[in-house]
């Protein structure tokens, strides 16, 4: 198989730099939560609402800030499975799984898309920390996944090449 499940090795350190850099704002918000200035997120049983503001953000930092308000660290416990070259940018299969405990959400971001946040999943207790879906990619981009585990955010990323299609098959 010509592609590997991510997310160990050098790729992660690159990912960490990018994500940490991008998360300046998120870091501030996380500090605010930690300091008890902002109430913690939703109660467990409350039905969460569609995060409108997060889906409207055009860059990763603002999207993550709107969604979580926390800092992100790269983790080799987050696995992202995406193709190296998408067969069609309109349908890119994305699978995320993690060995991290107490996962409450998994989100997928595509920084080069017009709006960065593609999908965000809420996982109640008892749901396995693994999800597969199909996403659109406007052009070659990283796919960034974020796993919320025990209140902290862990990430991994991998590049997917998107080329012009419409000729073969």
């Amino acid at each position: 198989m010509s592609r590997a499940v991510s997310s160990v090795s050098g790729e992660v350190s690159a990912g960490r730099r990018l994500v940490l850099h991008a998360l300046g704002l998120g870091g501030m918000a996380a500090l605010a939560v930690a300091a008890g200035l902002v109430p913690p997120a939703r109660a467990a049983e409350e039905a969460p609402a569609w995060p409108k503001n997060a889906f409207a953000q055009k860059d990763q930092a603002h999207a993550l800030d709107a969604l979580y308000g926390k800092t992100l660290e790269a983790s080799d416990k987050v696995s992202l499975d995406v193709p190296e070259i998408a067969e069609n940018g309109a349908v890119v299969p994305v699978s995320v799984t993690t060995s991290l405990p107490n996962v409450t959400s998994i989100s997928v971001l595509i920084p080069e898309n017009p709006y960065t946040l593609a999908a965000s999943y809420r996982l109640p207790e008892g749901t396995e920390p693994s999800v597969s879906c199909r996403l659109k990619m406007a052009k070659t981009s990283d796919v960034v996944v974020v796993v919320e585990s025990a209140g902290k955010l862990y990430g991994a990323k991998k590049q997917v090449k998107v080329t012009l299609g419409g000729c073969g098959g």
Binding site: G165, G166, C167, G168, G169
Partner: peptide, 16 residues
């Protein structure tokens, strides 16, 4: 495309 170049990449696609 589908005999001589079958299996090769044409833009983003693999020719059947």
């Amino acid at each position: 495309c589908h005999v001589q170049a079958a299996g090769r990449r044409m833009r983003g696609d693999i020719l059947a």
